[in-house]
Amino acid sequence: MRLTPKSATLLILVALIALAPVFFPSGFYYRVGALVFVNALAVTGIVILTGWAGQISLGHAGFAGIGAYACALAPVHWGIHPALSVLLGAAASAVLAWLVGRPILRLKGYYLAVASLGMGILISMVLNNERALTRGPDGIGVPELGLRAVLKDAGLGLSNGQFWYFLCGIALVVGAWAALNLRDSATGRALRALHGSEVAARTVGMDVARLKLQAFVISAVYASVSGSLLALQNRFITPDVAGFLHSVEMVTMAVLGGVGSVAGGIFGAAVLTLLPQVLTVLAEYEQLVLGAVMVLVMIFLREGIVPSMLRKGRRREE
């Protein structure tokens, strides 16, 4: 039987998530793994937006901030269950993305980059300044999701680290699966067509502005859910989640691994999440390294690591 690239990507992903814990020397690695999955989920959204639709956002952390603070605030103020707060955050992010994206995506070029950057900074400004609601820069506690206790009653006892590792892993697989399905759908093909040439896409009757808007809204939902999962597993969140640096991290991860492929984005997220854990001395150099990676990858490996490698491998086979 020959696997399609889609099922191959998903199978490898599931196998990696399921088998990696065998090699974990301590419980700490579950936590790092969960962090990789959370970042990879947000990056998958960037792949849809930047890799396929060819639009760049520098404010996606703002949506992660909305997702995160929805989980911190909605249960306390409105008594909404944390799990439903994830959906609430995603809906709020989608609406905001739609409102911001609609007028801007009619324009070409770098406008979305700037507008999204401004939007992200406005969101983090509100999170920092509205102390009465968000407790400002010091951060705020997040209620317990409660799912782990339910699983325990059902006879599935997991440590906190294990629980979040597998929950985030499942979220990533679902996210990757949805993204890959989208890529092969009519919408996905249209998105990649407009990336190739907007004029050509318009000539064959595609509603270019609407397609770009769809990609922007979908990717905002990915970022929002990723922010929610981060908040729920840390049980604490600060406005840094919505900060400019976090937005840039997302783009860098996607660009490093390969912004045109879901597998590439996940790979990039894994590398840039693990690197600081492995080399703690890098903390000082984080910005320097991020910046250098962005520039060098764009000049020398324009498609990112994974697609470049795949191409090399394919050439060798021939």
Binding site: I56, L58, V251, L288, G291, M298, I299, R302
Partner: peptide
């Protein structure tokens, strides 16, 4: 210059990368 002819997305990422690089160097 090495990226001449690259799409707008790439050029935006390059200049953002350069700005973060300069900021990181200035911090050090």
């Amino acid at each position: 210059e090495p990226a001449r002819g690259a799409p707008v997305v790439s050029l935006v990422i390059i200049t953002i990368g350069a700005s973060i690089f300069i900021r990181g160097a200035a911090q050090l």
